[in-house]
Simulated scan of single mutants.
Amino acid sequence: MNPFDYNYTEEELLAAYGEIEEPCSVNHRKNIENFLQLFVHPIICIVGFIGNTLVILTYALYKRTKSMTDVYLLNVAIADILFVVALPLIIYSEQHDWAMGNWSCKLLHGVYSVNLYSGMLLLACISGDRYFAIVQARRSFRLRSSTLLYSRLVCVAVWLLALVLSLPTFVFYERYQPGPVESSLYNSTQDSNTPYECFFRFHSNETARMMKTMVPSSQVAVGFCLPLLIMGFCYSSVIVTLLRAKNFQRHKAVRVVLTVVLVFVACHMPYNIALLYYTINIFSEQECSHEEAVELTMIITKSLAYVHSCLNPLLYAFIGVNFRNHFQKILRDIWCLGKNYMSARRSSRVTTEMYISSRRSVDGSTNDNGTSFTM
């Protein structure tokens, strides 16, 4: 059990833990956490940033958002890219004693929480949109005729709900330095230069108990179970409808749907099961070995959940034929611009006049390509 679930005074901690001979060691957990933060999470952030940036650029420059799914996919990419930007800043701050101050502690963890909720809920919205488009195609025709307005309202509602669910993080997260008694419970040697922490900080036991139960519970319930139930119902109905079609392309679509669901479950279920178990036993006394095993499980499974932000572009955007066509057009245009630019650089070595002429040709090609942005 974490002895600081309530902000006890040092006198109370001394009275409660005065007979403890040796505190639980956290060195093994810290080593694994540092390894993941320094070698695994940067890869996740780089891949996720590149993939989601390409999705945003494709929608912004080439594929104008024309359907509800397009709007949802664009918002998912925005949520994921904000997530992979906030994560390395959090890691950097943890490694450097939260030197940017209390505001960075609240802001970074708050943004992290907002994008966590919004990303998961938007994936549920995509499954709902696919359900209405395939299973309830006739009944939803009028509703989907005003796709952009409806989908934008849904996205605004999702972001607002994510912000409301993240308010405890903005309010109660603080940068603080553990006291000498608190430090001694976690360190076998006394260190006057105790590093700063960024975590929940409460001023009453009642608030601590309520928030330390409510926050992870809402993350499991709203951030995982609710999207999973919606996706399970919608995609199972979609699969039944597609199987009735008896078409090869529809059977291929079934495999895509199953892949989407299985990847979602494989990435997020382990961490949410560990988080739920931790929440249920948060106020119970545990052996050091058991507590360390639970915390290690949460650290490793959380990294697995991060991987989903890298896979979202592949699962939802690049899997579509139209989106791939637009993306290939981007690559061709970039290649042509780069080729013309290199040609211009080579010609500049011969004469200045040829260099100016080639630069004009590049400008002309850019203007021609501008027409493709609106297609």
Score class of each variant (00 low, 15 high):
Ala162Pro: 05
Ile78Asp: 00
Thr374Cys: 10
Thr352Val: 09
Ala79Val: 01
Val254Asn: 05
Phe200Lys: 01
Gln37Met: 12
Val164Met: 15
Arg332Gln: 10
Ile20Val: 14
Leu36Thr: 08
Ile356Cys: 08
Ser218Thr: 09
His96Ser: 07
Pro168Arg: 07
His251Pro: 00
Leu185Trp: 14
Val181Ser: 02
Ile126His: 05
Met342Leu: 14
Ser118Gln: 05
Arg138Asp: 15
Gly364Ser: 13
Val164His: 08
Trp98His: 07
Thr259Gly: 13
Gln190His: 10
Phe132Arg: 14
Ala162Gly: 15
Thr213Met: 11
Gln286Pro: 00
Thr9Ser: 15
Thr213Ala: 04
Val26Pro: 00
Ile273His: 00
Leu107Cys: 03
Ile356Tyr: 09
Asn272Thr: 11
Leu331Ile: 07
Ser217Leu: 04
Pro216Ala: 03
Val26Tyr: 13
Asn102Pro: 03
Leu262His: 05
Leu73Val: 06
Glu287Lys: 08
Val40Phe: 15
Ser166Cys: 09
Ile334His: 12
Phe323Val: 04
Phe283Arg: 04
Leu243Ile: 01
Lys302Phe: 15
Thr207Pro: 02
Ile239Glu: 05
His251Tyr: 14
Ser347Asp: 09
Lys252His: 09
Val40His: 11
Asn367Ala: 09
Leu304His: 04
Gln219Lys: 07
Val114Phe: 05
Tyr17Lys: 12
Thr169Ile: 15
Val260Tyr: 02
Leu89Pro: 01
Thr189Tyr: 10
Leu122Gly: 08
Ser303Asp: 11
Ser237Pro: 01
